[in-house]
Simulated scan of single mutants.
Amino acid sequence: MLKAKQNQHIIQYECDYLIGCDGIKSSVREFTGIPFDGGAYQNVFFVADTHLQSSIEVDKLSVFLNKDGLTILFPMTGKFHFRIMGILPKKFYNLKNPDKEELLAIVGKAMNITVNFADTTWFSTYRLYHKKAARFRNDNIFLCGDAAHVHSPAGGQGMNTGLQDAYNLAWKLAFVDQGYASHALLDTYNEEREPVAPQLLKTTDRMFTYMSGENFVLAIIRFYIFPLVMGILTSSEFFRKRIFAAISQLQINYKKSSLSIGKSGNIRAGSRLPLFYIWQNNRKISSYTFVNSFINSPFRIILFNLKASGLISLPSNLFKVLEIELNPNNIASLKNIGLPKSFLILVRPDNYIGYCANKVKLAELDKLMKSGYFLLPVGSAQ
């Protein structure tokens, strides 16, 4: 509930919950007194919105390594339109308003290719930080995104991580607000999301240090070892998939969460619902199309080679039971990702698996829903 009171030029808001999504200098975080520890990278960076004439492929991200660091070109909508980011040349470090045309000319020369920048509509310099809040919740106040953790742009992880913070918190707040869960459910936001940040900071910090560090050893790694290793890794389909899974954050899981119970084949609760393809009504569809066709039901239960009759007591407005057809194509597809000949998977609103088993065990499902978090009337245990 949100209430507003206006007194002259001051507007006061009264609300049940407050979510701080207000960036690295978060006023919400400072108000809570939650420590925000970490540091800053030694380099100064620049970012520009510009157009260029070059042989660079206009639909791909390009990274250029040089003796002073790196330059990254992000393709944008529009012909030859790029967002360019890199380490500011040292001669501009102490200038409040560096000449952007002179700077980009130096950057273009360091890229060691023929490139001309033009129509630069936006330019800014800044410092990068690697910091994390000690916790993401303080009573009824929550921290998301850069207010909770901030790191280098290596791997493009920042926005993705912030969105996943919000996704994880949103459905839990909605459940509490709608009376489907107790306030204890909100404790699992910090439980699930806070452990993700340290590992992400460690990975991006190491990667960015290798790419931007100035000492001799790091220069050797950047110029000779890194391109060689990446060339070898990207030539392997196995490593390409692993790199994609890491950068896309599909490997992040909540297996240690108190909301994750059970295992079925190679799939454990707390994992993200794996992507697989099935045949339903003579149509090939993905697992995500399958479950999200019923997005209005907060929990979706996937069944394979099991009778749905054991779940008839579930409230239909909260649970949607989806049965995968028993046919040779589906048997092969499910076996390929490590699922057994029969299974039950409970998919949470954020597409993570909350519970899985090889049989319909309503007693276990009932136990999860009555674990102290949910207030859902599952029904009589069978």
Results as ranks from 00 to 15, higher is better:
349 P>K: 14
369 M>D: 13
295 I>A: 15
292 N>M: 09
146 D>H: 12
185 L>S: 03
15 C>Y: 06
326 L>A: 14
356 C>G: 05
331 I>P: 01
172 K>S: 08
253 N>P: 02
282 N>V: 09
326 L>G: 10
295 I>N: 11
94 N>I: 00
67 K>D: 13
190 N>C: 08
206 R>N: 05
90 K>S: 08
122 W>M: 12
21 C>G: 05
331 I>E: 14
10 I>W: 11
134 A>S: 10
101 E>L: 09
62 S>Y: 07
46 F>I: 04
382 Q>V: 11
274 P>S: 12
231 G>Q: 08
83 R>Y: 09
143 L>F: 06
152 S>N: 00
162 G>V: 00
309 S>H: 10
159 M>S: 08
363 A>E: 10
41 Y>W: 12
268 R>Y: 15
340 P>I: 03
55 S>V: 08
305 N>T: 09
291 V>N: 03
222 R>Q: 03
167 Y>H: 14
156 G>W: 09
260 S>I: 07
315 P>W: 11
323 E>A: 11
325 E>K: 04
253 N>R: 08
298 P>V: 08
343 F>L: 08
165 D>E: 05
39 G>W: 01
311 L>N: 01
246 A>K: 12
156 G>R: 04
122 W>V: 02
350 D>R: 12
122 W>L: 03
17 Y>A: 00
55 S>M: 07
345 I>P: 01
324 I>N: 07
199 Q>I: 10
344 L>P: 02
253 N>T: 06
278 I>F: 12
377 P>E: 01
307 K>A: 06
42 Q>G: 15
94 N>Y: 13
146 D>F: 14
297 S>N: 12
49 D>M: 12
373 Y>T: 07
51 H>Y: 13
266 N>R: 10
129 Y>H: 13
372 G>F: 06
260 S>Y: 04
5 K>R: 13
63 V>I: 12
237 E>H: 14
188 T>E: 03
120 T>Y: 11
165 D>K: 09
133 A>C: 10
282 N>R: 11
209 T>Q: 11
355 Y>N: 09
157 Q>W: 02
56 I>N: 06
330 N>W: 11
275 L>G: 08
8 Q>V: 04
67 K>H: 15
330 N>L: 05
75 P>G: 07
378 V>G: 06
289 T>Y: 15
292 N>Q: 14
272 R>L: 12
47 V>I: 15
33 G>T: 05
15 C>D: 01
256 K>C: 05
54 S>K: 02
54 S>N: 04
200 L>E: 10
202 K>F: 02
124 S>H: 10
274 P>T: 04
355 Y>D: 00
1 M>S: 15
275 L>K: 14
158 G>M: 02
121 T>Y: 10
79 K>G: 00
244 F>Q: 12
254 Y>F: 14
207 M>Y: 12
73 L>Y: 13
50 T>M: 02
47 V>G: 14
311 L>S: 06
29 R>W: 06
28 V>D: 05
156 G>S: 04
344 L>S: 07
301 I>R: 01
199 Q>E: 08
101 E>Y: 15
81 H>I: 01
322 L>V: 05
